[in-house]
Simulated scan of single mutants.
Amino acid sequence: MPKKIRLGILGGGGDSLIGVLHRVASFINDNYEITGAVFNPDHEQSLAFAREIDVPTDRIYKDFDTFVAEEMKLPAEERIQVVSVLTPNFLHFPMAHKLLENGFHVICEKPMTTTLEEAKQLQAAQEKSGSIFGLTHTYTGYPMTRQIRKMIEGGMLGNIQKVDAKYYQGWINDLIHDKEKRTTTWRLDPAKSGASCCNGDIGVHAFNMIEFTTGLRINDILCDMNSLYDDNPMDIDATTLVRFDGSKAKGVIRASQIATGEENNLSIAIYGDKGGIKWEQENPNFVYYFPESGPMQVYKPGHAYNSELSLNGTKLPPGHPEGIFDAMANIYLGVAKAVRGEAYDAGEFPTMTDGVRGMDFIEKSVASNQQGNIWVSLES
Rank of each mutant, 00 (worst) to 15 (best):
K250H: 13
Y167W: 08
T239Q: 11
I148C: 09
I253P: 01
D201V: 10
I236H: 04
N232Y: 07
D164G: 01
V242K: 01
I270Y: 01
L222A: 09
M234V: 01
I253N: 03
E282N: 07
Y168W: 09
K179I: 15
T214D: 03
P233V: 12
D231W: 05
Q169W: 04
M144I: 03
G272C: 02
G155N: 03
I258T: 15
N199Q: 10
R217Y: 05
K150T: 15
A195T: 13
E263D: 08
T213W: 03
P190M: 04
H205P: 01
T214H: 06
T138E: 10
H137Q: 11
S196M: 09
Y168M: 12
H205F: 02
I160W: 03
D237H: 13
W186D: 14
M209G: 09
I277L: 14
N199V: 14
A249P: 03
K150H: 14
L266Y: 11
K181S: 13
N264K: 06
K162I: 13
I221K: 01
A195P: 07
E262N: 12
A165N: 03
T240A: 02
L228Q: 12
N219E: 15
N283S: 09
I218P: 12
D224N: 11
A249G: 03
K179F: 09
D178P: 04
K250M: 14
G276L: 01
R217E: 13
E282M: 12
D178N: 14
A191M: 07
E211R: 06
P190C: 06
Y271H: 14
N226V: 14
R187K: 03
D230Y: 07
Y139S: 13
A165I: 08
L157S: 00
C197G: 05
G158I: 02
G215C: 13
N265K: 06
A259P: 01
G215T: 12
T214Q: 06
L222W: 07
T214P: 02
F244G: 01
L188E: 10
I218W: 08
K162S: 10
I152G: 01
K274T: 02
A255K: 01
S267N: 06
D220M: 05
N199L: 04
W186F: 11
K274R: 15
A259F: 08
G215H: 12
D231H: 05
I221W: 06
T240W: 00
Y229H: 15
E263Q: 05
E153G: 00
N265C: 05
G215K: 10
K150V: 12
Y229C: 11
L228R: 10
E211P: 04
M156N: 12
N232C: 15
S256G: 09
N264E: 04
R217H: 09
L188K: 00
H177L: 08
C223E: 13
D224H: 13
A195N: 03
K162V: 12
